[in-house]
């Protein structure tokens, strides 16, 4: 059983990322259950999805029970702290989407080093990936989410094969399929660095 806790910001394609993980699991003959919260969260708010691979009935991941935290945004990585334990593999994009509260309430956006330090203190490993840069390199500027799915696949944390993920990417992405597969591949190579 593998529990993946996905976090990000509305509009980053986190639901698509979770569907790819779900389809990859289904293709591999595994049981899988996904959850998401819609509605107000679409308007630039924090978004959380879960993907539970294996024999679980409930879709939600209890505190300290995530096997993987897959984050598309740096601040949201930190917000996921409670789901981490000493077995958790943290895979985070270094992308920053500065929330309005930083401007209006003069709050401080944490540095990348602070995020790495904090998450390293509660998790097993932390891997930072320049997902936006790699997406641009792949010619799919909007596909940071696919890069991060590649990172997850490359980390080996789900136990699902690369081909399953690639097939799932093709099933969920209609446009610029080649660019997205390239984004996935660049992420995959980065994922190998992760201590999973």
């Amino acid at each position: 059983m593998v529990d993946v806790y996905l976090v990000g910001v509305g509009g980053q394609g986190i639901i698509t990322a979770s569907k790819i993980i779900g389809d990859a699991a289904l293709l591999a003959g595994e049981k899988v259950i996904l959850s998401e919260t819609h509605g107000m969260a679409q308007r630039g708010g924090s978004v959380v999805c879960t993907a539970r691979i294996g024999d679980r009935a409930g879709p939600l991941i209890p505190d300290k029970a995530a096997d993987v935290i897959l984050s598309l945004e740096l601040l949201e990585t930190l917000r996921a702290e409670c789901k981490a334990s000493k077995v958790t593999v943290v895979l985070s994009s270094t992308e920053r989407i500065v929330p309005l509260s930083v401007s209006t309430q003069k709050m401080r956006y944490p540095s990348q080093q602070e995020v790495v330090d904090k998450m390293s203190s509660v998790a097993r490993s932390v891997t930072m990936v320049d997902a936006a840069g790699l997406a641009g390199q792949a010619g799919a500027r909007m596909s940071s989410n696919i890069v991060m799915v590649g990172v997850l696949a490359g980390s080996g944390a789900t136990g699902l094969g690369r081909d399953r993920f690639e097939e799932a990417v093709k099933a969920n992405i209609r446009r610029n399929v080649d660019e997205n597969l390239r984004a996935f591949a660049l992420g995959f190579d980065q994922g190998k660095r992760a201590k999973a």
């Binding site: 910001v9 107000m40 969260a41 308007r43 630039g44 601040l75 917000r79 709050m107 401080r108």
Partner: peptide
């Protein structure tokens, strides 16, 4: 009770906003 965790409360909030 080992599974309990207090979420971090000093982080900048990210409520939904008008686009």
């Amino acid at each position: 009770e080992a599974g309990k965790c207090e979420p971090p409360h000093d982080l900048p909030t990210r409520p939904p906003v008008l686009c």
